[in-house]
Design a protein around this nucleic acid. Sequence first.
DNA 1: GCATAGATATCGCGA
DNA 2: TCGCGATGTCTATGC
Lengths: 240, 240
Amino acid sequence: MEKYKFFDLPEFSTVKDILENERTNYVITLFGLCKILYAGRASSIATYSSRLITFKPDGSVLVHSNRKLKPVNWQPSSSEVKVEIGDELKIYVERKRPKEVLEILMPIVYYLSLSKVDEGEFHLFGSESEMVEEVVKNPELISRDFIPLEREYQTPFGKIDLLGVTSTGYLVLEFKRAQAGLEAVSQLKRYVDYLSWKGEKVRGGIVAPSISKSALKLLKKYELEYFQLSPKLLSTIRLK
Amino acid sequence: MEKYKFFDLPEFSTVKDILENERTNYVITLFGLCKILYAGRASSIATYSSRLITFKPDGSVLVHSNRKLKPVNWQPSSSEVKVEIGDELKIYVERKRPKEVLEILMPIVYYLSLSKVDEGEFHLFGSESEMVEEVVKNPELISRDFIPLEREYQTPFGKIDLLGVTSTGYLVLEFKRAQAGLEAVSQLKRYVDYLSWKGEKVRGGIVAPSISKSALKLLKKYELEYFQLSPKLLSTIRLK
DNA sequence: GCATAGATATCGCGA
DNA sequence: TCGCGATGTCTATGC
């Protein structure tokens, strides 16, 4: 199988044939004029304009304009693609659950390319779960008397990142890899409320590299605590 | 200016020249073998693999594998691109704040394309703010005695979607365009707590098309309310 | 520039 | 399948 193929100003029939028969083998890119209708969880219209459209083997579809990271329109993986030929090329991308349809109308396709794209290996460092691991290994990062009990402790109102005990009772820890905001405090409060309702003696703390001023204010109103800790990045990758 | 250009197995010098001189005019797509290092808010390594790399005029960069919607690596708009030629082609994409670097190493570029992509018009229907508008116009959707006072009412602990009054006092409404979960309840509780601390008589309600079981349970624990309402989609766009 | 919250969020995980 | 929460979330908006 070739690494890639390229079609200059392809006929509609060529595009239809390729989208129907090669979609699961190649990443297919169309560049052309298109109008896009979307209906599903929301609905949208994108008027005729030159855009780049990408179809992936898993059924993902992305429609990109000339700016920003996010596509103008899209369809997540496990979508089905159907093509009809009329005055325009009509491409329907349908997703079953939730039921959503993307309708791509193209009066002209400037080019089409097929690329044999692979998955490759990928490793990320500096996630929230790595911070939790760090504290489990070194509980004294929180306090001298902190003993971790359970990660991802299930409550009826969500999972506690790390539940432990100190000399004064339970300690609920909510971790954030970036600055903690109001949302983090509300989330922690929810878990602490639950244990309190159960009659437990419980404290709660946010573990994050920083916390916003209003989040800190709210934290204090709720009588919760803040522990400063940053995620560890991979030492071999460095900013110049 | 041409609508697009295509280069089969371009020399490194050609890729460098184009990335340096045409990046603000065209959306540039590279298909080739690449290894990717990222360092910034987190850090990551993506091992050598065939991927599609897109550079947009605003500085956005996307690296796509063969599956899923989200790029493997990326850099948001306002990033700078630098190219160096050695044994491999080295592309550095740097973002100032937060300081982040993407390092793309390519032993081979299979093809390069330049596409004159436009922005186009875009309209979306069915957002949360449309639901708020609907309730402001028809307050009886909430209750006979509900009078809306202010949208996006600022508190020190976040914005209230819609603040109003009923015969029993203030009513804080938190809207969700999709099913409300625990997070929505915690958010609402935060606003209600604030007004309570101020000494106001206040009720709170979630306005959403549905609510999860545990969220409903938490809502009742907190003595908050639920109002069923769905976002309106554009009637001219219909699922078949 | 900072913070807050929405999003067709997407995605992975666990029950 | 559903629900929940992290995400290098991104993005728009208001202060």
